[in-house]
Simulated assay, not measured.
Amino acid sequence: MVKITFQSVSAQKPEKDQDADKITVPQAHGRLVPLMKPRKPFPTGLCCLAISLVIFTLGLVLPSIYIYRYYFMSQQIPEDSLFHCRVIYEDSVYAPLRGRQELEENVSIYLEENYEQISIPVPHFGGSDPADIVHDFQRGLTAYYDIALDKCYITELNTTAVMPPRSLWELLVNVKRGTYLPQTYIVQEEMVVTGRLRNMRQLGPFIHRLCFGKETYRLRRRNQRQRIERRETKKCHRIRHFENTFVVETIICDRF
Protein backbone atom coordinates (compact mmCIF):
# COMPACT_ATOMS: atom_id res chain seq x y z
CA MET A 1 0.00 0.00 0.00
CA VAL A 2 1.26 3.42 -0.88
CA LYS A 3 0.66 6.37 1.39
CA ILE A 4 0.23 9.78 -0.23
CA THR A 5 0.64 12.94 1.84
CA PHE A 6 0.46 16.75 0.97
CA GLN A 7 2.71 19.44 2.36
CA SER A 8 0.92 22.58 3.41
CA VAL A 9 1.97 25.84 1.68
CA SER A 10 2.15 28.93 3.85
CA ALA A 11 0.15 31.92 2.60
CA GLN A 12 2.64 34.35 3.98
CA LYS A 13 5.30 35.65 1.67
CA PRO A 14 8.79 35.60 2.94
CA GLU A 15 9.97 38.87 4.33
CA LYS A 16 11.84 40.99 1.86
CA ASP A 17 15.46 41.14 2.63
CA GLN A 18 16.57 44.68 3.41
CA ASP A 19 19.73 44.09 1.47
CA ALA A 20 17.87 42.88 -1.62
CA ASP A 21 18.48 46.19 -3.41
CA LYS A 22 22.20 45.85 -3.06
CA ILE A 23 24.05 44.16 -5.80
CA THR A 24 26.85 42.09 -4.47
CA VAL A 25 29.72 40.46 -6.16
CA PRO A 26 31.39 37.52 -4.58
CA GLN A 27 34.98 38.21 -3.69
CA ALA A 28 37.78 36.05 -2.52
CA HIS A 29 37.65 34.59 0.94
CA GLY A 30 33.84 34.67 0.82
CA ARG A 31 33.50 38.41 1.45
CA LEU A 32 30.79 40.40 -0.37
CA VAL A 33 31.34 44.06 -1.27
CA PRO A 34 28.91 46.56 -2.84
CA LEU A 35 29.38 47.23 -6.56
CA MET A 36 30.17 50.96 -7.08
CA LYS A 37 28.69 52.85 -10.00
CA PRO A 38 31.37 53.87 -12.58
CA ARG A 39 32.39 57.58 -12.63
CA LYS A 40 31.66 59.70 -15.66
CA PRO A 41 34.75 60.39 -17.81
CA PHE A 42 36.29 63.90 -17.64
CA PRO A 43 35.17 65.99 -20.67
CA THR A 44 38.64 66.30 -22.24
CA GLY A 45 37.28 67.18 -25.65
CA LEU A 46 35.24 70.07 -24.26
CA CYS A 47 38.27 71.40 -22.39
CA CYS A 48 40.42 71.31 -25.54
CA LEU A 49 37.68 73.12 -27.46
CA ALA A 50 37.53 75.88 -24.84
CA ILE A 51 41.32 76.34 -24.90
CA SER A 52 41.27 76.49 -28.70
CA LEU A 53 38.59 79.19 -28.62
CA VAL A 54 40.62 81.26 -26.14
CA ILE A 55 43.75 81.01 -28.30
CA PHE A 56 41.76 81.89 -31.42
CA THR A 57 40.24 84.93 -29.69
CA LEU A 58 43.64 86.15 -28.53
CA GLY A 59 44.93 85.66 -32.05
CA LEU A 60 42.28 88.09 -33.27
CA VAL A 61 42.41 90.61 -30.43
CA LEU A 62 46.18 91.12 -30.12
CA PRO A 63 46.82 91.89 -33.82
CA SER A 64 43.80 94.21 -33.80
CA ILE A 65 45.28 96.15 -30.87
CA TYR A 66 48.65 96.32 -32.65
CA ILE A 67 47.11 97.57 -35.90
CA TYR A 68 44.95 100.13 -34.09
CA ARG A 69 47.88 101.45 -32.09
CA TYR A 70 50.36 101.83 -34.92
CA TYR A 71 48.15 102.42 -37.95
CA PHE A 72 45.34 104.50 -36.53
CA MET A 73 46.39 106.06 -33.23
CA SER A 74 49.70 107.18 -34.77
CA GLN A 75 47.75 109.16 -37.35
CA GLN A 76 45.93 111.12 -34.65
CA ILE A 77 48.66 113.67 -34.11
CA PRO A 78 48.14 116.87 -32.09
CA GLU A 79 48.02 120.11 -34.05
CA ASP A 80 51.08 121.46 -32.25
CA SER A 81 53.12 118.66 -33.86
CA LEU A 82 52.07 119.50 -37.42
CA PHE A 83 54.18 122.06 -39.26
CA HIS A 84 54.14 123.70 -42.66
CA CYS A 85 57.67 124.91 -43.43
CA ARG A 86 59.00 127.33 -46.04
CA VAL A 87 62.76 127.55 -46.05
CA ILE A 88 64.99 129.97 -47.96
CA TYR A 89 68.41 128.52 -48.77
CA GLU A 90 71.39 129.27 -50.96
CA ASP A 91 71.74 126.78 -53.82
CA SER A 92 75.38 126.48 -54.85
CA VAL A 93 75.34 122.91 -56.22
CA TYR A 94 72.76 122.77 -59.00
CA ALA A 95 73.91 125.00 -61.84
CA PRO A 96 70.55 125.83 -63.51
CA LEU A 97 69.09 127.04 -60.21
CA ARG A 98 72.02 128.59 -58.39
CA GLY A 99 71.11 131.37 -56.03
CA ARG A 100 68.38 131.79 -53.44
CA GLN A 101 65.79 129.00 -53.51
CA GLU A 102 62.73 128.13 -51.48
CA LEU A 103 61.83 124.72 -50.11
CA GLU A 104 58.31 123.92 -48.93
CA GLU A 105 57.32 120.85 -46.92
CA ASN A 106 54.89 119.51 -44.30
CA VAL A 107 56.33 117.90 -41.19
CA SER A 108 54.58 115.60 -38.70
CA ILE A 109 56.45 114.74 -35.51
CA TYR A 110 55.42 111.76 -33.37
CA LEU A 111 57.18 112.21 -30.05
CA GLU A 112 55.83 109.10 -28.31
CA GLU A 113 56.55 106.78 -31.26
CA ASN A 114 59.92 108.51 -31.89
CA TYR A 115 59.63 109.11 -35.61
CA GLU A 116 59.15 111.93 -38.10
CA GLN A 117 57.27 112.09 -41.38
CA ILE A 118 57.97 114.71 -44.05
CA SER A 119 55.86 115.39 -47.12
CA ILE A 120 57.45 117.37 -49.95
CA PRO A 121 55.05 118.59 -52.68
CA VAL A 122 55.99 119.18 -56.27
CA PRO A 123 58.67 121.89 -56.17
CA HIS A 124 58.12 125.20 -57.92
CA PHE A 125 61.39 124.74 -59.77
CA GLY A 126 62.99 121.63 -61.32
CA GLY A 127 65.85 119.64 -59.88
CA SER A 128 64.00 117.79 -57.11
CA ASP A 129 61.29 115.12 -56.92
CA PRO A 130 58.20 115.26 -54.71
CA ALA A 131 58.52 112.73 -51.92
CA ASP A 132 57.34 111.41 -48.59
CA ILE A 133 60.02 110.61 -46.01
CA VAL A 134 59.92 108.68 -42.73
CA HIS A 135 62.73 108.84 -40.16
CA ASP A 136 62.23 106.01 -37.67
CA PHE A 137 64.58 106.66 -34.74
CA GLN A 138 63.49 103.55 -32.88
CA ARG A 139 64.69 101.25 -35.67
CA GLY A 140 67.39 103.56 -37.02
CA LEU A 141 65.98 103.62 -40.56
CA THR A 142 64.94 106.20 -43.15
CA ALA A 143 62.50 105.59 -45.99
CA TYR A 144 62.21 107.80 -49.09
CA TYR A 145 59.11 107.40 -51.22
CA ASP A 146 59.74 109.07 -54.57
CA ILE A 147 56.26 110.04 -55.75
CA ALA A 148 57.34 110.70 -59.33
CA LEU A 149 58.85 107.21 -59.67
CA ASP A 150 56.38 105.48 -57.32
CA LYS A 151 59.29 103.71 -55.60
CA CYS A 152 60.52 103.38 -52.03
CA TYR A 153 64.14 103.48 -50.88
CA ILE A 154 65.37 102.33 -47.46
CA THR A 155 68.66 103.28 -45.80
CA GLU A 156 70.21 103.64 -42.37
CA LEU A 157 69.19 106.78 -40.50
CA ASN A 158 71.79 109.53 -40.76
CA THR A 159 71.63 111.05 -37.27
CA THR A 160 74.22 113.64 -38.28
CA ALA A 161 71.88 115.23 -40.79
CA VAL A 162 68.50 114.46 -39.20
CA MET A 163 67.44 115.94 -35.89
CA PRO A 164 65.68 113.63 -33.42
CA PRO A 165 61.94 114.27 -32.98
CA ARG A 166 62.17 116.32 -29.78
CA SER A 167 64.94 118.59 -31.10
CA LEU A 168 63.24 119.07 -34.47
CA TRP A 169 59.95 119.81 -32.74
CA GLU A 170 61.59 122.54 -30.65
CA LEU A 171 63.24 124.00 -33.78
CA LEU A 172 60.01 124.08 -35.74
CA VAL A 173 58.06 125.57 -32.85
CA ASN A 174 60.44 128.52 -33.00
CA VAL A 175 60.14 128.63 -36.79
CA LYS A 176 56.36 128.63 -36.52
CA ARG A 177 56.46 131.99 -34.83
CA GLY A 178 57.70 133.55 -38.08
CA THR A 179 57.19 132.97 -41.78
CA TYR A 180 60.67 131.91 -42.84
CA LEU A 181 63.80 130.54 -41.34
CA PRO A 182 66.97 132.57 -41.54
CA GLN A 183 68.70 131.91 -44.84
CA THR A 184 70.44 128.57 -44.70
CA TYR A 185 72.58 126.40 -46.98
CA ILE A 186 72.39 123.03 -48.73
CA VAL A 187 74.46 119.86 -48.30
CA GLN A 188 74.51 116.73 -50.47
CA GLU A 189 74.46 113.04 -49.70
CA GLU A 190 74.73 110.39 -52.41
CA MET A 191 73.08 106.99 -52.29
CA VAL A 192 73.27 103.96 -54.54
CA VAL A 193 70.71 101.18 -54.94
CA THR A 194 72.03 97.83 -53.73
CA GLY A 195 69.06 95.52 -54.24
CA ARG A 196 65.33 94.87 -54.05
CA LEU A 197 63.53 94.47 -50.72
CA ARG A 198 60.56 92.12 -50.48
CA ASN A 199 60.03 91.52 -46.75
CA MET A 200 58.56 94.81 -45.58
CA ARG A 201 57.48 93.77 -42.08
CA GLN A 202 61.05 93.78 -40.82
CA LEU A 203 61.14 97.55 -41.42
CA GLY A 204 58.57 98.38 -38.75
CA PRO A 205 54.95 99.58 -38.99
CA PHE A 206 55.66 103.20 -40.02
CA ILE A 207 57.89 102.43 -43.00
CA HIS A 208 55.72 99.44 -43.89
CA ARG A 209 52.70 101.73 -44.09
CA LEU A 210 54.58 104.19 -46.33
CA CYS A 211 56.02 101.61 -48.73
CA PHE A 212 53.32 98.93 -48.76
CA GLY A 213 52.49 97.83 -52.31
CA LYS A 214 55.40 99.74 -53.86
CA GLU A 215 58.70 98.61 -55.31
CA THR A 216 61.20 98.97 -52.47
CA TYR A 217 65.00 99.04 -52.66
CA ARG A 218 67.94 99.18 -50.27
CA LEU A 219 70.33 102.15 -50.39
CA ARG A 220 73.95 102.51 -49.38
CA ARG A 221 75.84 105.76 -48.92
CA ARG A 222 78.75 106.49 -51.19
CA ASN A 223 82.03 107.57 -49.71
CA GLN A 224 83.88 110.67 -50.87
CA ARG A 225 86.06 108.82 -53.40
CA GLN A 226 83.06 107.18 -55.02
CA ARG A 227 81.40 110.58 -55.32
CA ILE A 228 84.43 112.01 -57.12
CA GLU A 229 84.66 109.03 -59.48
CA ARG A 230 80.93 108.91 -60.21
CA ARG A 231 80.07 109.32 -63.86
CA GLU A 232 77.46 111.89 -64.72
CA THR A 233 75.92 109.45 -67.23
CA LYS A 234 74.49 107.32 -64.40
CA LYS A 235 70.77 107.66 -63.85
CA CYS A 236 70.19 109.61 -60.63
CA HIS A 237 67.37 111.63 -59.12
CA ARG A 238 67.24 114.12 -56.27
CA ILE A 239 65.08 114.73 -53.23
CA ARG A 240 65.55 117.96 -51.28
CA HIS A 241 64.28 118.03 -47.72
CA PHE A 242 64.68 119.95 -44.50
CA GLU A 243 65.05 118.34 -41.05
CA ASN A 244 67.87 120.33 -39.50
CA THR A 245 69.25 123.87 -39.67
CA PHE A 246 70.24 123.16 -43.29
CA VAL A 247 68.67 121.66 -46.40
CA VAL A 248 69.75 118.19 -47.50
CA GLU A 249 69.80 117.06 -51.12
CA THR A 250 69.66 113.26 -51.27
CA ILE A 251 70.91 111.96 -54.62
CA ILE A 252 69.73 108.42 -55.40
CA CYS A 253 71.48 106.56 -58.22
CA ASP A 254 70.24 103.26 -59.60
CA ARG A 255 73.70 101.71 -59.82
CA PHE A 256 77.43 102.49 -59.88
Rank of each mutant, 00 (worst) to 15 (best):
Lys3Cys: 13
Lys3Ser: 10
Ile4Cys: 09
Ile4Gln: 06
Gln7Ala: 12
Gln7Ile: 05
Val9Met: 06
Val9Trp: 03
Val9Arg: 08
Ser10Phe: 10
Ala11Pro: 15
Ala11Val: 08
Gln12Asp: 12
Gln12Cys: 07
Lys13Arg: 10
Lys13Tyr: 05
Lys13Val: 03
Pro14Ile: 04
Pro14Asn: 06
Glu15Tyr: 06
Lys16His: 05
Lys16Ser: 05
Lys16Gln: 08
Asp17Glu: 07
Asp17Asn: 14
Asp17Lys: 09
Asp17Trp: 02
Gln18Val: 07
Gln18Asp: 10
Gln18Thr: 04
Asp19Thr: 07
Asp19Pro: 00
Ala20Leu: 13
Ala20Ser: 15
Ala20Pro: 03
Ala20Gly: 05
Ala20Cys: 13
Asp21Thr: 12
Asp21Cys: 07
Asp21Arg: 10
Lys22Phe: 10
Ile23Asp: 14
Ile23Lys: 11
Thr24Ser: 10
Thr24Gly: 10
Val25Cys: 05
Val25Arg: 07
Pro26Thr: 10
Gln27Arg: 08
Ala28Arg: 12
Ala28Ser: 14
Ala28Gly: 09
Gly30Trp: 02
Gly30Tyr: 02
Gly30Ala: 04
Gly30Asn: 04
Arg31Val: 12
Arg31Leu: 09
Leu32Ser: 14
Val33Arg: 03
Val33Tyr: 07
Leu35Gln: 13
Met36Tyr: 12
Lys37Asp: 12
Lys37Ser: 15
Pro38Asn: 04
Pro38Phe: 05
Arg39Val: 09
Arg39Cys: 09
Lys40Gln: 11
Pro41Gln: 00
Pro41Thr: 00
Pro41Glu: 00
Phe42His: 03
Pro43Glu: 00
Thr44Ser: 10
Gly45Gln: 11
Gly45Ser: 10
Gly45Asp: 10
Leu46Lys: 15
Leu46Cys: 10
Cys47Leu: 15
Leu49Asp: 07
Leu49Tyr: 12
Ala50Thr: 06
Ile51Asn: 08
Ile51Gln: 03
Ile51Gly: 07
Ser52Ala: 14
Leu53Ile: 08
Leu53Phe: 08
Val54Phe: 13
Val54Asn: 04
Ile55Lys: 00
Phe56Met: 08
Thr57Ala: 14
Thr57Asp: 05
Leu60Cys: 11
Leu60Ala: 03
Leu62Gln: 04
Leu62Arg: 02
Pro63Ser: 03
Ser64Arg: 14
Ser64Asn: 13
Ser64Asp: 11
Tyr66Cys: 03
Ile67Leu: 13
Arg69Tyr: 15
Arg69Cys: 02
Tyr70Arg: 04
Tyr71Val: 01
Tyr71Trp: 04
Met73Gly: 04
Gln75Ile: 01
Gln75Lys: 11
Gln75Ala: 07
Gln76Arg: 09
Gln76Asp: 12
Ile77His: 06
Ile77Tyr: 05
Pro78Thr: 00
Pro78Tyr: 01
Pro78Gln: 03
Glu79Lys: 09
Glu79Met: 07
Asp80Leu: 02
Asp80His: 12
Asp80Gln: 12
Ser81Leu: 03
Ser81Phe: 03
Ser81Glu: 05
Leu82Phe: 02
Phe83Glu: 01
Phe83His: 01
Cys85Ser: 15
Arg86Leu: 07
